Computed example of a mutant assay.
Amino acid sequence: MTDVYKGLKRFRDYQNNTNISIRNKYLYCAVDKVANSTIKALLYKIEYGEVWKENYIDRKSLREKRLSPLLSPFQLPSDLLDEVYKSDGYKRFCFVRNPYSRLLSCYLDRIADRRSFPSREVYDALGKSEELVTFKEFIELVCEQNSVKQNSHWRRQVDDVMLCKIKFDFVGKFENLNNDLLCVSKLVFGDILPELLDLGINYSPSKTNASDKLYEWYDQYLESLVYESYKQDFEAFGYDRLVFNSCS
């Protein structure tokens, strides 16, 4: 299964967002814009164990995989990597998010801001330099792309976590983050006290509150476009369509 990512996502994204602990025997498939920084910060704290220091966690260490205590696939021999993916000795988990709020959060944080690498991909693809890319333009662009071409911040989550290739022990949800992190801690680590996990602390470098703004940004056209393009995410992870009053 060393080529598990092929046909689903970019090689670099596969290496960056696949997080493996040999010490604690788990696989965490991270999804960008799904509390990735917060989840990794808590995992790092547990991985460091007795040598933990508060200054180990900063934005740079959460962004750069080379600073992570968790391993990437390329660092493991193929037989051990197969064990990580298939053995009962390893626990496998991921976290997902409502596609509507994830895409809106990505736009507000990464595209409208213009300073991130994902924003350069979008502006270049649309041939824009000065004029702001609208939310409508962003949604139309990403919905046309296949998963391999998509940036990890808006890639379809079924492909980003390689759902067709990996059998997960637990799929958590952004919308139920604290409770689901407790489920993960019990599944992987046993009895870890909630105060050790620092539940409730948001390590994200930016917070958009996108979940509360959906009806400000979506209309029936954009809602339908996202639903059809990300239909597998909605169905696989149990998310509902936005409902608009057709008479309004």
Rank of each mutant, 00 (worst) to 15 (best):
A35L: 08
V4A: 14
V133G: 06
F237E: 05
Y44I: 01
F138W: 07
L197K: 02
L76S: 11
K40E: 13
T208H: 01
D113Q: 07
E175W: 14
Q232C: 13
K25A: 04
N16W: 11
S224W: 04
S101E: 13
K91R: 15
P118F: 09
E54W: 10
L132P: 15
Y48L: 06
A112G: 00
N24P: 04
R10I: 01
L43R: 03
Y123A: 07
L199G: 06
Y28P: 00
F11D: 07
L27C: 01
A210N: 07
W154P: 14
W217R: 05
C94M: 11
K207M: 00
A30T: 05
E47R: 08
K136S: 11
L43I: 02
F170Y: 14
N17T: 02
V142A: 06
K9D: 09
L76P: 09
P99S: 04
A210G: 15
K65F: 12
W52A: 00
I166A: 06
K173C: 08
Q232P: 04
E175R: 06
E216T: 10
F74L: 01
V148Y: 07
K33P: 06
N151R: 00
V171N: 07
Y44F: 15
L214I: 09
P194Q: 07
V188I: 08
R59C: 00
I57Q: 04
L8T: 10
S101P: 07
E64N: 13
D113S: 06
L196T: 14
I22M: 14
N209F: 11
G172L: 03
P73H: 11
S37R: 04
Y90N: 10
Y123F: 15
M1Y: 13
S211L: 06
V31L: 01
I139H: 04
S147R: 03
L76Q: 09
A30L: 00
F135N: 05
T134S: 15
N176F: 15
W154Y: 15
F135V: 01
L43Y: 05
L43P: 07
N55H: 13
V184Q: 03
T208P: 00
L132H: 14
C247R: 04
L76E: 10
C143Y: 08
D124E: 15
N16F: 12
P77Y: 12
L196W: 03
L8Q: 13
N19E: 09
V161S: 08
N245F: 11
L126S: 12
V148K: 00
R102Y: 14
S101T: 15
K65S: 09
S116I: 07
F237W: 07
N55C: 12
R92N: 02
R114G: 01
L27M: 03
H153A: 14
S68G: 11
T38L: 00
V188S: 01
D3Y: 14
C164M: 13
F244W: 02
G200A: 08
E121L: 14
F95S: 11
Q150R: 05
S129A: 13
N55Q: 14
Y48V: 03
V243G: 03
E131N: 13
P118E: 05
E195H: 11
V96E: 05
D240T: 10
V184P: 08
Y28H: 09
L42E: 04
L187I: 03
K173S: 14
F234E: 06
L108Q: 09
R120P: 01
P99T: 02
G127S: 08
D160T: 05
R59Y: 13
A125I: 05
Q232W: 12
R114C: 06
